[in-house]
Structure formats: structure tokens, C-alpha cells
Design a binder for these strands. Structure first.
Lengths: 342, 342
DNA sequence: GAGATTTTGAGGTACGTAAATCAGAAATAG
DNA sequence: CTATTTCTGATTTACGTACCTCAAAATCTC
């Protein structure tokens, strides 16, 4: 039988009340006695039954998810995953509040974070904007004891408790390798579209892509990076223009959102000779369709559902001071081809 | 506040005892009364607090994992994931028994399944061998109320409650596409090595590979399939022979295990001109190393840890008659290149 | 309509932990 | 050596569900 708090009390030769004081970090225990109890806990291998503890506390974990507003499919998917998780809140003893903030807006994010200071939730998951004022706001929040995990977009590691997202440099390298291999030995030009070079993720992806493509296929020439601001219309214009400027374009890499526009521009040239190898990020209804019809060659994806569920698991664990199954919480860079679509 | 059993009693105008009889399918309730209670449950949206229920029952879920013996790294990894999960059994209220059976041996598997009939566990996860006698044994086991999920290798859907593994036809197609794209427009021969054509997974992968490679790169010629019986030494011999018979071999696809031998054979030719494009299955220390050094071009992988954890989650849910988050339980076909290694 | 049978109610204990109260013991200060 | 403060023990209630017993009520049988 698994040891209980009573067994600790017996093993340590103290009362249940004292064990409780130690376990729940309540004051009024001498260091000596505390050590005795902690020793007993280690000796008999006590593991707190979290289910029973939560029952006794009638605890719910108040969690806040802060997600950028905006039309793009990935963020919409992320939001709906958060909502789905909120729907399971009863069973999981969590209470999720989803807050929308304007995208790429550090000031708005700071304001949102500050509003949490009044009644700090137990945990916060935030799609971070990497700016000094945001750093400061998160620091203040964490000082209240709130656990903070970054979602999709990271901050320097010291500022948050965990990151639920992918390694974007590696994602860029992966895109670079695929581009290089798919264009095996060919010469030509490759267009790169970013959302905004002010965003960390996009910078990381570009860095990785450049590095790897240069390694593998030095004969390919990367055109100057264009910025779509994650807007489908802008992406459409950029791609259409590039395609008419460079009829023999070898490849296109869109490391931001706005794939809807990109696909539209490609579609217009569907039957032209020499369609460029196209690699994009995030599996959405549009990219899925384009992958299936062959307009897009590969989609690199981060699974928003996994990210949300992982963030929740990690938040709960960290709030309870419990360990995390690291391998389970690593978000992978999925490569989707037409054949391994989920 | 979330509704409790007391709320049901009140809403239905019956006593707690009756609610309990209905909830736990105990006898002695008139159909009429039962309906009243069930109606109240639906009306107030009662969701049983499983944590409290399990606490009251001091329940543990007795689970059995049946995994093939054998040296290959993938199965060893799978076993160690099961053991890791068993190590968390305290916290998750599960009791896992891990049973080894000889690989690809239907009779041994049947014997093992039959031995479970005496004290049927609540759930069984089995790496299935697809044979009629196995079907029958699993049917008998399920008749006792045991939930059965297949792991890695599937059976016809009607025979099991769930499959925790990947779509192997899709995996084969994915390999075929990668091979075709990496060999863009080249002509030549592609060698395929299977473990055994008697195993469903391997047949599926081959089917998918052939189909897709033929679509994409009809100029490539697939050599007759060789069988390694998942033995590294056999794989080594097969690859070495093939390489000397076909010095200009364009590609190698190993859809079974035994990659250690394959890598060794490739290594011997490392500095020869025209190393073949090599695609294999399952990320192990050997394939990871070979991917890193560039001997292997791509590894298709199924994450054994995910499969085991998913199997456990599904077993627990099915045992309790609870719903499953389908998206969370879909095991993906991971494509690993040198750049997106976890 | 009496007796037998089935169905329902009321109440309790248990699971493992949290959290509180209050009395008593031990340590520290003066 | 008191007076005070700090620690510790004993006990109780609660969380939401399961499961048990015993009695009472309703229904069925002849």
C-alpha cells in the first residue's frame, strides 16, 4: 500500500498536524522538526495524492491565456484549442480565461499583464512579444507567484517558467534543407516572405533557413526578404509580383502567415511551366488544401492543440511544484507532405 | 459550482442511494425511476468527479502491456517507455504489468492472452500479430470486459477498442514521396528492405511506398524486396551485396528494423561517389547518429513514448466509459531530417 | 387484503488530504 | 523563575464519490 500522511507522522514520530504544516509550508515548525519530517517523507517514499489533495482543497487552477487577436488561421486555431480546453475545465479542475490582445503590440500586452496583478491567477500562458517593457511586466507578475509559460513565441529563458512552442531556428533549417533537397542541384532564385522582421520567431526561422540553404545548395540565390505583415492580401501581391519579375523562380519560403494570398497567387500560375517549390508554415485549411492539390510542397507545423494542452499540463505541474515529463512537453516541428497529413 | 450527486438527488426528487444505484449500475431501481435520475443528470449537466470516485474506490487500473521480445532498438525503446510509465503508476493510479512474448509468434501471443483470462485486467495494450488465432483470443478477452488497444501494429478495427500507432500505408507513401523528391528526375534503382512480408505493418509500408514512388518518379526502378527479419547482420549483408551489385544505386528504403547493419554497410562506402538516398524507419541512437553524419537522409518515426502514454490514457478513459480527445490520441508520422531532430 | 417481493430512503463509514481550532508543551526573554 | 512567545499534538470537518446496512414504503401475487 502506498504511504499516506499518517505513515509520515508515524515514521517521523510527530503528529499529523505537524506533517501537514511541513507539507503545505505552513509556519510554526522548527527547522529540526521539519528536517525530521522531510527525512521520513524521503525514507518511506511518500508521494502526495494530488487527486485527494485537490479534492480536499476543492481546488481549481485559475489560468489565463493571452492570445493575439487577428484573422490568421493559426491564431484562430490556437484560440479554438484554448476554448476546447476550457470546455474540459470541469474534468480537469481548471478555470481558463482567454484574453485577446492586439497582435505585435507590446504596450497592449503590458496593459493586459498589469491587469492581472490585481487578482493574480495561478498560471498564465502568453504568446509573447519580445520587448523590454513586456519583460518587466512578466517579471512583476511572476513576483506574485504566478507561473508564466510562453506559448508559440518565446522570451529569454530566465523570464518565464517554460516555453510551449518549437525551436524556430531549427524549423528554418529544416525548411532550408527541404528546399535544397527538393531543388537538388538546380540553380535559381528563392523568394522568402516573412511576417515581420521585428518578431523573434520570424527572425529565427530566417536565420536557420539562410544558413542551411547556403550549406546545401550554394547555387541557389536567396532574394531579399519581403514582409507581408501576416496579411493575405499583401502576401498575394508580393508573390504575384515576384513571380512576374522572376518567371523561373526556383522556390518560395513563407515563414509567416498569410498563406491564403500566397496560394491564390500560385494558383493563377498553376499551369505555367516550372512552378516554384513552395514551403510554408502552419497547417491550416488553406495550406492543407494547397498541399493536397500540389501547389505547396511542404508545410512545417507546430500543433496548436499540443501546445495548449502542454501549456496547461506544465502550468498545473509547476503550480503544484510537481515534476514534468520533459519528453512529453517537447513540441515537435512537424513536416507535412501530401502523404502524411493528419 | 459544479453539480454533485446530491444535486442530482434533489433535482430528481429521489434519495442519494438511488442516485448511486443508477450511477453505478447497481440493481434494484425501477426503469421509471432510473429514467428520472438520468434525466436529472442530463438536465443539470452532472459530470462525475473521477478523482473523487477513484479515491473513494481506492481504485487502481490494472493494465497489461504485451510487447515482443527482441534486440531491436525500437522495441527496446517501447519497453522502456512502458517501464517509465509504470514508474509513474503511483501518481496515475495504474498498475502496469509488462509481458514479453517472442516476436512474430502468434501461438505464443495467444498463450499469453489466454493466461490473462483467469484474472482479466481492466485493460490490455498489445503489439498485435495479425493472425486468426490471435483474433479469437482477443475476442475472448474482450468478452470478459477487458478493454484492448493495439499498439504499433494493428488488427481489424472491429477486434480492438483503439489503435495506438501510425497509418503505415501513409508512412510508406511519405517515404515514397521523399525518395522521389530527393532523387528529383534522376533515373536508377531503389532497393527496399522489409523485416518480413508476413507482418501487416511492413506490407502496408511497402504498398504505400511503391504506389507513391511510381507516381512521382516513374523513372526509378524498385528492386525486388529483400527481407532482413529485422536482424542487423542480415540487413548489413543485404545492403553490402546490393551496393556491390549496383554501384550506382539511387536509393535505399528500409521499412523494417536492423538499421544498425544498414548503417554499417553504408559507412563502408562513405567516400564512394554517388551514395544512395537512404530513408529508414524509427529514430534510435543508430539512426540518429547516421542522420547526423549524413549517411541517412530521412527517418520516419513513430514516437514510442507518445504511443504508450496515449494507450494508457485511452485505456483509462475507455475503462471508465469516458470520452477521448481524438486529436490528442492520433499518433503522427514524424519525419526527421538532420535539422529537426528532437 | 395479507403476505411476499421489490424498490426506495436514511444514514453511516471510507478514501487521502487540507485546514482549522484549541489545548498543552517546549523554548526563549526578561 | 515567571511570563511570554513559539512550537506541537489531538481532534474535527470538509471535499465528492462509493458502498454498505437496515428500515420503510411501494408494488406485486394469490
Amino acid at each position: 500500500m502506498r504511504p499516506t500522511v499518517h505513515d509520515i507522522a508515524e515514521a517521523a514520530g510527530v503528529s499529523l498536524a505537524t506533517v501537514d504544516r511541513v507539507l503545505n509550508r505552513r509556519p510554526g515548525v522548527r527547522t529540526q522538526t521539519r528536517a525530521k519530517v522531510e527525512d521520513a517523507i524521503a525514507r518511506i517514499g511518500f508521494i502526495r495524492d494530488m487527486a485527494a489533495a485537490n479534492l480536499a482543497k476543492s481546488r481549481i487552477y485559475p489560468l489565463v491565456f493571452i492570445v493575439p487577436q487577428g484573422e490568421n488561421s493559426f491564431m484562430a486555431g490556437l484560440r479554438s484549442e484554448v476554448e476546447a480546453a476550457a470546455g474540459r475545465s470541469m474534468q480537469e479542475r481548471i478555470a481558463i480565461r482567454l484574453i485577446d490582445v492586439p497582435a505585435f503590440d507590446a504596450a497592449a500586452l503590458v496593459k493586459c499583464l498589469e491587469s492581472l496583478l490585481e487578482i493574480p491567477p495561478a498560471g498564465v500562458a502568453v504568446v509573447a512579444v519580445d520587448a523590454p517593457e513586456v519583460h518587466a511586466a512578466i517579471e512583476r507578475l511572476r513576483e506574485t507567484g504566478t507561473i508564466v509559460v510562453t506559448l508559440v513565441s518565446d522570451l529569454p529563458a530566465a523570464l518565464r517558467d517554460h516555453f510551449a512552442g518549437v525551436d524556430n531556428v531549427a524549423a528554418g533549417r529544416t525548411a532550408g534543407r527541404l528546399m535544397g533537397r527538393f531543388l537538388a542541384g538546380r540553380q535559381g532564385k528563392v523568394a522568402v516572405i516573412a511576417g515581420s522582421m521585428l518578431v523573434g520567431d520570424h527572425r529565427d526561422r530566417l536565420e536557420g533557413f539562410r544558413e542551411r540553404l547556403h550549406d546545401i545548395a550554394p547555387s541557389l540565390q536567396i532574394l531579399p526578404v519581403m514582409e507581408s505583415h501576416d496579411d493575405p492580401n499583401a502576401a498575394h501581391a508580393l508573390v504575384a509580383d515576384t513571380l512576374s519579375d522572376h518567371p523561373n523562380l526556383a522556390g518560395i519560403y513563407n515563414l509567416g502567415a498569410g498563406n491564403r494570398g500566397l496560394v491564390k497567387a500560385l494558383e493563377a500560375r498553376r499551369h505555367a511551366a516550372g512552378v516554384p517549390v513552395t514551403i510554408v508554415h502552419e497547417l491550416t485549411p488553406f495550406t492543407r488544401e494547397a498541399l493536397q492539390t500540389g501547389l505547396i510542397d511542404a508545410v512545417l507545423n507546430q500543433d496548436a492543440g499540443h501546445e495548449v494542452r502542454s501549456a496547461i499540463r506544465v502550468l498545473k505541474a509547476r503550480i503544484d511544484g510537481q515534476p514534468v515529463v520533459a519528453a512529453q512537453e517537447r513540441i515537435r516541428i512537424d513536416i507535412f507532405l501530401k502523404d502524411n497529413l493528419p
